[in-house]
């Protein structure tokens, strides 16, 4: 069997490459060779869907998940199901030339099934802000939208520099970021949210240890004396996060000082272009003075 596979691999390697063949390396370091830039892409990752729209490659997008809700036009693309159990039949019937999956949120089983059906799979694995920008460039090259992607990345970088310039040199308030209130889930070391908080000029009180998203004791979090508390909302929820359970804790300095805020979690948890929106929003929550003063002086 191995010998046969090796022979096939050798034969494939010796074949002349097709005319416009495209070989790319995905974020998991896998090499993928496609006959041409894929015209029919299924995205199993909401952030990838957002990126494809942001770089103007949405016409190539033929299928998305139920969770791909941004931009609004994304909802009108054919759905293939959720991220954990997308419909294999649904995907096959869309005749994809490429399916984009993620290491965080999709299952290995989906990946294996697609490989078995010889549908090319592109794996994304963003962890940091720069991974997201890198992914935008990669997806741009993959879809013949390299220039548009580079322009979009340049704009995002410029906006990030603007935030950095405003918060630089200021004291760094301690921030408690609440991913989920009960049981308390918070961002840990190495998570995107912790990085965004640091870029926004704050210091996450829960970033001292892993895993990326961790359960945490509320009293331990409060004992670290957060100066700002940020509650994440989840767009699919009907209501914004319940503030009343927190407002009851009125003796906590952050809450007494009126520094209990909410943020749309899609801006801060999704590895897409909107992380910069999230960064700007976080920076304004953590350093309102940096933005008010600058605006009034204009």
């Amino acid at each position: 069997m191995m010998r046969f596979l090796a022979a096939v691999a050798l034969a494939v390697a010796l074949l002349p490459a097709p005319a416009r063949a495209l070989t790319v390396t995905d974020q998991a370091g896998r090499q993928i060779t496609l006959p041409a830039a894929p015209a029919r892409i299924i995205s199993l990752v909401p952030s990838v869907t957002e990126i494809l729209f942001a770089i103007g490659a949405q016409d190539r997008l033929v299928g998305v998940t139920d969770f791909c809700d941004y931009p609004a036009e994304a909802r009108r693309k054919p759905h293939v199901g959720g991220m954990l159990a997308p419909s294999l039949e649904g995907m096959v019937s869309l005749k994809p030339e490429l399916v984009v999956v993620t290491n965080a949120g999709n299952r290995q089983e989906t990946f294996d099934q697609l490989e078995r059906l010889r549908i090319p799979v592109y794996v994304v694995n963003p962890v940091t802000v720069s991974d997201v920008l890198d992914l935008m460039g990669r997806l741009g090259r993959l879809t013949d939208r390299a220039e548009a992607a580079d322009r979009a990345v340049a704009v995002l970088r410029e906006r990030m520099r603007e935030v950095t310039a405003r918060v630089e040199g200021r004291p760094r308030p301690r921030v408690l970021y609440v991913l989920w209130p009960d049981p308390l889930m918070v961002p840990g070391r190495g998570s995107l949210v912790s990085e965004l908080i640091a870029l926004a000029g704050g210091e996450s009180v829960t970033a001292d240890g892993g895993p990326e998203y961790r359960r945490y004791s509320l009293e331990a979090a409060l004992a670290r004396n957060p100066e700002v508390i940020v509650l994440a909302s989840h767009s699919s929820e009907r209501s914004p996060p319940k503030r009343d359970n927190w407002e009851r804790l009125s003796r906590v300095p952050a809450i007494a000082a009126g520094r209990l805020y909410t943020i749309n979690g899609d801006l801060t948890h999704r590895y897409g272009p909107r992380i910069v929106d999230g960064l700007e929003r976080l920076a304004r929550l953590i350093h309102p003075e940096a933005f008010n003063r600058a605006e009034s002086s204009r």
């Binding site: 009293e219 409060l222 003796r251 906590v252 300095p253």
Partner: peptide, 8 residues
């Protein structure tokens, strides 16, 4: 005592 300790 008031403050965080009281909350906890």
């Amino acid at each position: 005592v008031k403050g965080v300790d009281q909350v906890v």
